[in-house]
């Protein structure tokens, strides 16, 4: 069996948050980010035969995502008729590189801090993939969306003490996962 398998049915559950977070920091627009993420999943579906199993599914999807983000900026630039982009970078390959630098490295417009925070956010989301579905869902509702305990309990039909045990298990896993690089 190949080391890394591919399973599109699980993509949204597994990677949507990660890809979304990666994108929104770079495009700053929720609708645009949603478009780019769903285009990435579609492109993944269409090129599944190119998946060699050398990289993990996530790495592979991110490489598609990066191209989509660059495409997005290319479109914006050409819509604005920014000829100077082409003038300075007549060679299409160089243009690509230039865009890549600008787009994929958030540090050009923000402080270094923000880049570290972005990296941290992605590390947390990656660690969240270790949680089971229920833990991940409840942890996300409580911690990232900041929902009331009561709201979550009603929606998922669990007791508060049940919720806290699940949250606690999720936090233990996350702390362990992040400990090596971030504590």
């Amino acid at each position: 069996m190949a080391e890394n398998s591919i399973d599109p049915e699980k993509w949204v559950d597994r990677y949507a948050d990660y890809l979304f977070n990666y994108t929104i920091v770079r495009v700053n627009d929720r609708e645009v980010a949603n478009d780019i993420v769903s285009e990435t999943f579609l492109a993944g579906l269409n090129s599944m035969k190119n998946f060699k199993g050398e990289a993990t599914e996530r790495t592979w999807l991110i490489s598609i995502l990066k191209r989509k983000i660059i495409d997005h900026y290319r479109r914006i630039n050409s819509n604005k008729g920014q000829a100077e982009v082409k003038m300075n970078f007549p060679d299409s390959e160089n243009e690509g590189e230039w865009l890549e630098e600008k787009v994929l490295d958030p540090s050009h417009r923000n402080a270094e801090d923000q880049m570290e925070n972005q990296e941290l956010g992605l590390a947390i989301l990656k660690c969240m993939e270790q949680l089971n579905e229920k833990q991940a869902r409840i942890f996300k509702m409580k911690t990232i969306e900041g929902l009331d305990t009561e709201t979550i309990c009603n929606e998922l039909n669990i007791s508060p003490s049940n919720l806290w045990v699940i949250i606690h298990r999720a936090r233990t896993t996350l702390a362990q996962c992040l400990e090596k690089n971030w504590f």
Binding site: F20, V25, N34, S38, N117, G121, L125, T143
Partner: peptide, 27 residues
Amino acid sequence: QKLSLLIKKAKIQTCSEVEKEAYRQRM
């Protein structure tokens, strides 16, 4: 506590269930 601090610092933005359903639909 350290974990709480990191989470706060990261300012994670995730997509909603509705948005995820839209991705699934398109796929």
